[in-house]
């Protein structure tokens, strides 16, 4: 064979061909090595193991084109990431729009209490400058302190890992309803806390004014010379004044178990119940004349007015004011004018 090749090509051609063949084999080896190296880099990036030579021989390696396979997968991964980013952007815009539209202050803190996100209402509510929030903790921004204030919602959420609701948190003379919710990672650790603040200062003031006014009216009725009573639809007493107690002779504990018909003289009781039920059904009463019946069985003829108040369209209570008429034979009658 060798002699045939010698005859065909001559000695110099054979050496050239041998040398070219060696160079080609070396070049192919380098190419294969390059493909393996790059494939393994990509596989490592994908989070899997490198290819072992015994797993894929050189011919199979070139045949299945692993770089091409992984590269095409990367194209799909990048496309998917792009879709995800777009959806996240839309979700972010939606959240921003929601934050901007709600009438409550919302703030998101990281687990170190640093302010991450807030809405415009939050700035208005606490009189904050937008630039002052960057890199600051909630304590520093809202409470002006480096430590947790008493009843700190963030501190309680981090301790309990549960939502917290505070009905009246006071800061700088203003009252807030605070709701806080933890955001947890897949290990259950709290990574963020969302706090929502509702300014209830005006509501608290209104309630206080109403309570003051209610107390004032109660004082007026309590000290009135007339008999005043407020009766629930079931006939029990919601309120009676001092004159009522003195004339009828019942103590506060006894009044709790009384019904309106218990203080009406027996002969007037049927009429009185009819009037009472008529009033509950929307009827009108002008002047009422009846006879009360005291604890010590004395009759007290009275004349007065009864009105009814409603809540959500339903009768809530009747309100009556009575003056003792002639014929009063009670021991307390002397106190009446």
């Amino acid at each position: 064979m060798k002699s045939i090749i010698h005859k065909l090509f001559g000695e110099s051609d054979l050496e050239r061909l041998t040398s070219e063949n060696r160079m080609l084999r070396e070049a192919q080896f380098r190419q294969i090595e390059y493909i393996r190296k790059k494939t393994n880099q990509l596989l490592l990036l994908m989070g899997t193991l490198p290819i072992r030579p015994e797993e894929l021989d050189d011919d199979t390696l070139i045949g299945i084109d692993p770089i091409g396979v992984v590269a095409e997968s990367f194209v799909q991964i990048l496309g998917h990431e792009k879709d995800l980013n777009e959806r996240l952007r839309v979700a972010h815009d939606e959240i921003q729009a929601i934050l901007a539209s709600v009438g409550i202050g919302i703030m998101v803190l990281d687990s170190n209490m640093n302010v991450q996100i807030y809405n415009q209402r939050m700035l208005e509510m606490f009189g904050l400058d937008e630039g002052r929030l960057s890199g600051k903790t909630c304590c520093q921004v809202i409470c002006g302190s480096d430590s947790y204030p008493p009843n700190c919602a963030f501190e309680r959420i981090m301790e309990t890992r549960r939502p917290v609701h505070q009905t009246d948190w006071v800061q700088n003379g203003k009252h807030f309803e605070v709701s806080g919710v933890p955001v947890k990672n897949r290990f259950g650790d709290v990574t963020q806390v969302v706090l929502a603040y509702t300014d209830i200062t005006r509501r608290i003031e209104t309630e206080r004014n109403l309570r003051d006014r209610e107390q004032m009216y109660l004082d007026v009725f309590e000290n009135a010379g007339d008999i005043v009573q407020c009766v629930a639809p079931d006939g029990s007493f919601i309120f009676v004044n001092r004159a009522w107690r003195e004339h009828l002779g019942y103590s506060s504990d006894e009044i709790a178990g009384l019904k309106i018909w218990n203080i009406i003289a027996p002969e007037n009781r049927t009429d009185c119940i009819e009037h009472f039920n008529s009033l509950l059904k929307g009827g009108q009463l002008s002047e009422v004349e009846t006879v009360f019946f005291s604890k010590d069985c004395k009759e007290l003829p009275v004349k007065g007015h009864v009105t009814i108040s409603y809540s959500n369209g339903k009768p809530m209570a009747t309100f009556g004011m009575f003056r003792i008429e002639q014929g009063d034979i009670s021991s307390a009658s002397g106190q009446q004018s």
């Binding site: 596989l43 994908m46 899997t48 290819i51 797993e55 299945i64 396979v69 992984v70």
Partner: peptide, 10 residues
């Protein structure tokens, strides 16, 4: 793996 991985991706 990674032979199975490459096969699956392909």
């Amino acid at each position: 793996c990674p032979s199975t991985f490459i096969t699956a991706l392909r």
